[in-house]
Design a protein around this nucleic acid. Structure first.
Lengths: 216, 216
DNA sequence: CATGGCGGTGAGAAGCTATCACGAACATTA
DNA sequence: TAATGTTCGTGATAGCTTCTCACCGCCATG
């Protein structure tokens, strides 16, 4: 146990360079989108020549995958800290919107147009499932909605393995899915700028959707 | 007025080649996404060499813009024909879903991740506004929802220039926006494959969202 | 029939990803 | 301390991309 240090100077340097590369990558993505990410441009901006980056990332795809992983982790963290601070479903919604507005391209990186051939590694889908679990729990803490469930609720009774072994009612799962899809709907349209020029305040539409989601 | 013919053989040839280029472009987009669209590959597949395509399109951007225009037109047409056939809001929703599933990448081309620098030409936004008008009209034909409007309805009372001079109630405009954002939410998540592996049927979630949208 | 415009080509510049062989600096071991 | 091995960075190179240019040939119109 003489080797108490958990990282050699080299490892620290390597981690620091990797982080700096990702920083430049995020900057580039925020201003020009993920499709315009250029390893060459990053290298030049860091003062080193092209192929050097391949010591730190296997290639463009691996770098983007790493960014996607970080984005998912960031989203999961915001949800967890919000839930940890006692936020309910409304709190989660506001945390999500703030997180999305903070860096729209980061939101689109994980919720935007998928690349047909791409398959995310398993650890990423695990993080996504974790995020969904937080939402489901917040939905379970809500007063149950009155009225009989529809056809979809019945369907969810027999198709709920995605919720794990959580003993949540079908209506709760349904509400979680609605939460996800509805907020994603308004958010993605707002971030894509589809509302610009229409004149109204997207925040109020978001609020209205949220209220309707919690209301009935 | 001796020139009654509206197109010379050359113009017809030109139009036909342009159409063939777009055909190949769509094929390529459907299988690899818009970011992977390659003029060179299209030219090769058409049996001619690279720069020849520049006789028909100013460049990659102009080709993509043209595809976006066609996508918007196609969407507007589906909405118009559905509305013309007497379809109500539910009919429009089903037409939209069928149109989206028919070519997911076409859907993402106009509703997916935006490219930060890109601004669509005015005629495209006009087509989009036309589409929105069809939705608003379908919403106006619905029985009015009971209950007082919320804060967003009041906001829409003074921020409704996007609806043109249509004498629609604020609740109608609100419903149109909800229609758009909610269906886009479920649809984009489904098309992006975010539901695959979860086990449930996305069509039923779509139906549930639609029912809730029409219901109250 | 001659002239001009249009379509297509090959060459080439500039950018990108990615691989390779090499040298230099570092860390580790003998 | 000296030798060895690993890691980092570089330039060269291949192959792809978009896009421009000069040239050539055909078709259509005057």
């Amino acid at each position: 146990m003489s080797k108490a240090r958990t990282s050699t100077p080299r490892e620290r340097y390597r981690a620091q360079v990797r982080a700096e590369i990702k920083e430049h990558a995020w900057e580039q993505i925020a201003t020009a989108g993920a499709s315009a990410l250029s390893l060459n441009a990053i290298a030049k901006r860091m003062g080193m020549s092209g192929p050097a980056l391949y010591r730190y990332f296997d290639g463009r795809d691996e770098l983007i995958t790493e960014l996607i992983r970080d984005a998912y982790r960031s989203q999961a963290d915001t949800f967890r800290t919000a839930a940890g601070a006692g936020a309910g479903l409304a709190g989660l919604a506001h945390a999500l919107r703030a997180w999305a507005l903070d860096d729209p391209q980061r939101y689109f990186l994980i919720h935007g147009t998928p690349v047909p051939g791409y398959h995310a590694p398993d650890d990423i889908t695990e993080i996504a499932a974790e995020t969904m679990a937080v939402i489901v729990d917040a939905c379970a803490a809500l007063p149950p909605s009155d009225g009989a469930g529809g056809a979809f609720d019945a369907h969810l009774d027999t198709h709920r393995q995605w919720a794990g072994d959580r003993a949540a009612d079908s209506a709760v799962l349904h509400r979680a899915l609605s939460f996800w899809s509805r907020l994603h709907g308004v958010l993605s349209l707002e971030l894509a700028g589809q509302f610009t020029g229409m004149g109204f305040d997207p925040a109020l539409l978001f609020e209205a959707e949220l209220k309707d989601l919690l209301g009935p």
